[in-house]
């Protein structure tokens, strides 16, 4: 079966792109393969690990479970766009201060999810961090404790 390609316009980390994609191309694939956004990691491919999380119009989404055609007109941000000229954001800083990463494969996705979460809940309890803020992400290395600490620390700073 040959299908027509679709033209899609997306803004990625502030830069606008027009791409012509097979409808089946996943947003994660477009971002990684066409735009060099290799900070997006592919861990599970079944919408559970969140390593591929990006923000689309300010909302975090799992880019492995979106077709690129669904992102037409969207403004996409990845973890690479958070820091201001190399100065880490409070969340990023808290992650390194609290030793919240080991292999780092989950980290870009978690940071993007937490970045959105703390907009909605500025003073989360540890339980809320575990159950809500980190609900969409898996980490196989850290056992989460330091990630929970980092989110707590970041929330305090952002307050």
């Amino acid at each position: 079966m040959t299908v027509e390609k679709e033209e899609v316009t997306v803004t990625v980390n502030g830069e606008s792109h027009v791409v012509s994609v097979e409808p089946r191309e996943l947003l994660s694939q477009t971002l990684r393969e066409r735009m060099g956004c290799t900070e997006i990691n592919i861990g599970c491919e079944s919408a559970i690990c969140g390593a591929c999380t990006v923000q689309s119009d300010g909302k975090s989404v799992k880019s492995c479970t979106r077709f690129t055609v669904q992102a037409d007109g969207a403004d996409i941000r990845t973890v690479s766009d958070l820091a201001d000229e190399g100065t880490l954001t409070d969340i990023q800083q808290a992650f390194t201060d609290e030793h919240a990463l080991q292999c780092g494969y989950c980290t870009p996705g978690i940071v993007m999810a937490v970045d959105e979460y703390l907009d909605h809940n500025t003073d989360p309890s540890r339980e809320e961090i575990r159950n809500e803020a980190l609900q969409g992400n898996l980490c196989r290395c850290t056992g989460y404790e330091n990630i929970v600490d980092a989110v707590e620390t970041a929330a305090e700073k952002l307050d």
């Binding site: 909302k59 975090s60 989404v61 979460y117 969409g136």
Partner: peptide, 10 residues
């Protein structure tokens, strides 16, 4: 509903 805010958003 699980899956996190990433699922809830869409």
């Amino acid at each position: 509903i699980t899956g996190g805010q990433q699922v809830h958003n869409v």
